[in-house]
Design a protein around this nucleic acid. Sequence first.
RNA 1: UCCCCGGUAGCUCAGCAGGUAGAGCGGGUGGCUGUUAACCACUUGGUCGGCGGUUCGAGUCCGUCCCGGGGAGCCA
Length: 444
Amino acid sequence: MTTEDQRPKTEDRPPAADIARLAAHVGRTVSIRGWVHHLRSSGKVRFLVVRDGTGLVQGVLVKGRLPEEDFAAFDRLTLESSLILEGQVRAEARAPGGFELEVTRLEPLHIPQDYPISPKEHGVGFLMDHRHLWLRSPRQQAILKVRDEVCRACRDYFHDRGFVLVDTPILTPTACEGTTSLFETDYLDRGKAYLSQSGQLYLEAAAMALGRVYCFGPTFRAEKSKTRRHLTEFWMVEAEAAFYTLDEVMNLAEGLVAFAVSRVLAHRRPELQILERDVAPLEAVVPPFPRISYGEALTRLNEQGKEMAWGEDFGGDEETLISQAFDKPVLVHRYPRQCKAFYMEADPDAPELALCVDMLAPEGYGEIVGGSQRVADLDVLLARLEEHRLPQEPLEWYLDLRRYGSVPHSGFGLGIERLVAWLCGLKHVREAIPFPRLLDRLYP
RNA sequence: UCCCCGGUAGCUCAGCAGGUAGAGCGGGUGGCUGUUAACCACUUGGUCGGCGGUUCGAGUCCGUCCCGGGGAGCCA
């Protein structure tokens, strides 16, 4: 049993309060636990802005209204000092946020020297080197909260529609397709393993068990892509549904994106404001989204003076041009099979086309969704493997799905960072993930 | 892999035609009883990315390498 005076300081404190919920504590004395975001002094009146992850609040120290020792401690504080404040909450029009804390006690926990990030300007390289600290800035916090909302919206959307979450492996025995470069690693004494570039093939297997399934996890691409739209490690939510056709999967993807946008608008307005994101374009994102075929898209491009031959895939510039004609994401469907993956079903009305779809985000954010109806017939799939010069043996399990009760089925993948970057109005996807992995960046 | 731009103080940058390095911010000291990126005064601060070359003399010109940024290609 501890007696009154032996109890640690933290136990005789007033109740801890989240800064975001100070409105409920006006007139009461609370503890605020956080980090120094800003310091100002005007002699006998001193101000400090404290961050606790839920918000910012200004504390006011007036000489004589708190212990002299605590008042003096202010002078030792530096940016990002951790501390516990006690004080009375009051509404104050002059304070950012509308509330402030009349500080009656100040206990520094740790006082750093030379915190590298100042409120002034920094270059991208410097900030990326200090990503672990950069996350503390209001902007980065806002992005992380929007990302959280997007991820939860995805899970809710699928859960509400009877989709079962199925986790697909990250270590895989082979390349799903021979064309892309994969991260390779030693797998104990069994040779090489590769980091997954997609959960799709495994998800197809799960769809044959559970009907409607989705996965949500990291994917890895070792391509030497150096653009604002590429990461070597990024997160993808992928869905797969037995008996779904291309049209049904387009509806599903459209619904998902619309739902994620609406959830962010409903719950993350303050964060969008911090990011200075114009919400008007987002409010326009309600179904139905425009749908055009690859052929129509090509015609539009040629009309705009962009010479492109039939059969070529669109690059970043083409995607931007196509999407600029619409104020919502646009679904471009039925690309030539020659520029798409081996597992995509051919259009029965035009066998040179694939039953596939890309969703291009507005404002030049590029492809956010890629999906297709999958080849259901074993012989067709075997022929495709041959065309694409892919080995059959490592994919026998995948072929089994066509040997035992094969059904038409479709699915798509959505890139989380591209969606978050678009919603937040970011120039580069690297800010849409807490610790980006890029072509030339693995630290921190 | 290719193209373009850059590397100068802890950070963001300036530095003219080659003549021996500056500002703002930050840090430090002092002042200020309502500040909002506070303000005022003083002060601290540098292997000019590395190596080599041209030159009486190189942050500046040339070569080369390294690093960063932007873009292209690539990217089911």
